[in-house]
Design a protein around this nucleic acid. Structure first.
Ligand SMILES: NC(=O)c1ccc[n+]([C@@H]2O[C@H](COP(=O)([O-])OP(=O)(O)OC[C@H]3O[C@@H](n4cnc5c(N)ncnc54)[C@H](O)[C@@H]3O)[C@@H](O)[C@H]2O)c1
Ligand SMILES: NC(=O)c1ccc[n+]([C@@H]2O[C@H](COP(=O)([O-])OP(=O)(O)OC[C@H]3O[C@@H](n4cnc5c(N)ncnc54)[C@H](O)[C@@H]3O)[C@@H](O)[C@H]2O)c1
Lengths: 215, 215
DNA sequence: CTTTTCATGTGCAAAAATTCACAATGTCTT
DNA sequence: AAGACATTGTGAATTTTTGCACATGAAAAG
């Protein structure tokens, strides 16, 4: 299907990145874009864009560029977001609620099909989206029943590993972890960690470097 | 100060990563840790840990390992998070509120010193942390007055670039951007983007790959 | 005091990722 | 129809990052 066996990990990240400006262009913009323009709006090198896309096929027209609509469709197909992806969330606190209510996920085909929380006070509560918060012991059954592929962890770090184990047991194939700790999984479940403080520490480091090189 | 001019970007990211298990160990664990153990709990290679740390000095003891307390202090010093870092947030919606209320930031020395929102309904509202939501036109004055170094953007993507420009004008040196779009800055202000859907798309891609290789 | 043990720090090799540079190939103009 | 032009797709060169392997040095054991 693809030109090489193993696609570089950074390429996958960038594909998702490319789709943002393409979505904007689709609504209001020229129907065609060059690798240079696309690279510009994503802050990468034009050759990088071409090489990334070339792993999966020849989507462009020489001398012209890429058809915005076609390219976006191809990228979505590659990333497997052309069909809905079913999610569940564990931990319906501040962050969890804001994730569920966020329109961005739905727009991109990610659907929350279930929500779990260990707090008995919250169980049974009906969310704006219509979901009812269920207890943790239902994770296995509900995930299997609703064919949930990805679990989102939005609990405090203390409970994260236990929740992770429950999700593994429920057969999810991917976990998006917001708790600031490393969770262990088996080989056939992939974890992506989202840690804002890592990004902040990155900023703090470079701010400081800037001061030094100035002085 | 450091052994080479340019520290690899991945090294900085990992330093932030290393600090989390160290914080846990500090509370309850042995006072010394080996590069192997530390690497294990972060999912990286032991030699990587040693090399990353070696850029900044010799923090370990041969035959023994690293003193947890010392190492954590060194890492915090390197990342410039040994002193408080002042933040402001623009866009106090679902996500913004959950960020402000999150204890994790405070624990690591990040302090929200101001909050802004363009919605007149929200302006003047007092948050749980004591901050009062101010209008955007106050960004410049307040940021300069309170010596805010980093701005957090939590507005819808449409307004993000405008907000970014205001923050630049206010003299912030770093921006943490949660809006799913690329914002443009001048050279002396660094941007870090947080985009959950990129991570989700990553997961979706690999889920699909897994299916393929199985079939 | 000497030997053994253990884990660091690091030069070097390998692997991965990025960028260059240009032939290939399409469109537009005359 | 031919030439000018623009931009892709890609092999090669370069840069960056990772991992190996072992000398080095500190502590513990004998
Ligand atoms: N809020 C943020 O902006 C933010 C930012 C970065 C990281 N995080 C991380 O995300 C996680 C959630 O943050 P939050 O602000 O929503 O916290 P929160 O305290 O508001 O919500 C946590 C929720 O998880 C539930 N919970 C606790 N243990 C559970 C378990 N074992 N199983 C199921 N549910 C459980 C609680 O009942 C609560 O509803 C934390 O780990 C936090 O560090 C949050
Ligand atoms: N909520 C999430 O979990 C989540 C996840 C991923 C990304 N995001 C992104 O984060 C951003 C905020 O998300 P949210 O869920 O909090 O949205 P929200 O609609 O709840 O809040 C947005 C807030 O920004 C304010 N605002 C709008 N334009 C502004 C401007 N120009 N200046 C100042 N304030 C302005 C609004 O008044 C509102 O209070 C969005 O870009 C969203 O895509 C959110």
């Amino acid at each position: 299907m693809t030109k090489v066996d193993k696609i570089p990990e950074p390429t996958i990240k960038r594909l998702a990145f490319y789709s943002r400006p393409l979505e904007d262009l689709l609504e209001s913009g020229p129907p065609v874009i060059s690798s240079e323009k696309l690279a510009d709006s994503c802050g990468v090198h034009p050759a990088q864009v071409r090489k990334d896309l070339a792993y999966f096929g020849e989507f462009g027209v020489r001398g012209v560029g890429y058809d915005v609509r076609d390219l976006l469709r191809e990228i979505k197909r590659i990333l497997a977001t052309d069909k809905p992806v079913y999610l569940c969330i564990v931990g319906v606190g501040n962050l969890g609620t804001s994730l569920i209510e966020n329109e961005n996920f739905k727009k991109r085909g990610y659907r929350f099909k279930a929500a779990f929380d260990s707090d008995p006070e919250k169980q049974g509560e009906k969310l704006a989206c219509g979901l009812i918060i269920e207890p943790n012991h239902r994770i296995r059954e509900v995930c299997r029943e609703k064919e949930i592929e990805i679990g989102v962890i939005a609990t405090p770090p203390r409970g994260a590993q236990r929740v992770c184990d429950l999700l593994l047991d429920a057969g999810v194939k991917g976990i998006l972890n917001f708790a600031p700790m490393q969770v262990r999984t088996t080989g056939d479940c992939r974890v992506e960690n989202v840690d804002f403080t890592v990004k902040l520490e990155n900023l703090a480091y470079h701010l400081h470097r800037l001061d030094e090189s100035e002085g």
